[in-house]
Amino acid sequence: MTDCGCDKAKAELEEFLHRELSEQDLADVQEHLDNCEDCSTEHLVGLTLTQKVQRACQEKTPDALRQQILESLDR
């Protein structure tokens, strides 16, 4: 593993958060985050935002509204 540096870590932060990188790139970014306070802080902000969005997206449409939308699409 090699420390990928701030530029790469920040450029790939979104993909890192969603585990969309190769195993090697994940390991490189993780190593960098473990040793860089600035990037680690940015990672924490991204992680917190991602988790809040995921929780917010778990809400379900009320049944009556869902039915109304489906009926309107059928027309």
Score class of each variant (00 low, 15 high):
Ile69Gly: 11
His43Tyr: 13
Lys52Glu: 14
Arg55Thr: 07
Ser22Gln: 03
Ser72Phe: 02
Gln30Ala: 15
Cys57Arg: 11
Asp34Phe: 04
Leu73Arg: 15
Ser22His: 05
Ala9Leu: 02
Pro62Val: 08
Gln67Arg: 11
Thr61Val: 14
Thr41Ala: 11
Pro62Ala: 12
Glu12Asn: 15
Lys60Tyr: 00
His18Leu: 11
Asp74Gln: 07
Leu26Asn: 12
Leu65Trp: 10
Cys36Gln: 05
Glu31Ser: 15
Gln58Trp: 01
Phe16Asn: 09
Asp7Arg: 05
Asp25Tyr: 00
Gln67Ile: 00
Leu21Tyr: 02
Asp63Val: 11
Arg66Cys: 11
Thr50Trp: 09
Gln30Ser: 15
Glu59Phe: 06
Val53Thr: 01
Glu12Gln: 15
Gln24His: 07
Leu73Val: 10
Cys6Asn: 05
Gln54Ile: 14
Leu13Val: 04
Thr48Ser: 03
Thr48Lys: 08
Ile69Glu: 11
Leu65His: 08
Glu37Trp: 02
Ser40Arg: 13
Asp28Val: 02
Asp3Tyr: 15
Ala56Gln: 12
Leu26Met: 15
Gln58Ser: 08
Gln54Tyr: 13
Leu26Glu: 10
Lys10Tyr: 02
Asn35Leu: 05
Gln58Arg: 12
Val29Gln: 05
Asn35Cys: 05
Leu26Tyr: 03
Glu31Phe: 15
Cys6Met: 00
Lys8Ile: 07
Asp63Arg: 10
Glu14Met: 09
Val45Ile: 12
Asp38Phe: 10
Thr50Ala: 14
Asp25Arg: 14
Leu21Met: 06
Ala27Cys: 09
Asp63Thr: 11
Thr41Leu: 06
Thr41Ile: 02
Leu21Asn: 02
Gln51Thr: 08
Leu70Ile: 01
Asp74Gly: 05
Cys36Met: 03
Leu73Thr: 09
Cys39Tyr: 01
Lys60Phe: 01
Asn35Trp: 02
Glu31Trp: 14
Ala11Leu: 11
Cys36Leu: 06
Glu15Ala: 02
Ala9Cys: 05
Thr61Ile: 13
Gln67Gly: 05
Gln58Leu: 10
Phe16Gly: 03
Ala56Thr: 05
Glu14Trp: 07
His43Arg: 12
Gly5Met: 10
Gln54Val: 11
Ser22Met: 04
Lys60Ser: 09
Cys36Trp: 03
Leu21Glu: 01
Ala27Gly: 10
Ala56Cys: 08
Leu47Gly: 00
Glu71Tyr: 05
Glu14Tyr: 02
Ser72Ala: 13
Lys8Leu: 13
Gln51Arg: 15
Cys6Phe: 00
His18Asp: 13
Asp34Arg: 11
Ser40Trp: 08
Glu31Ala: 15
Glu42Gln: 09
Leu47Trp: 10
Arg66Met: 14
Leu44Gly: 01
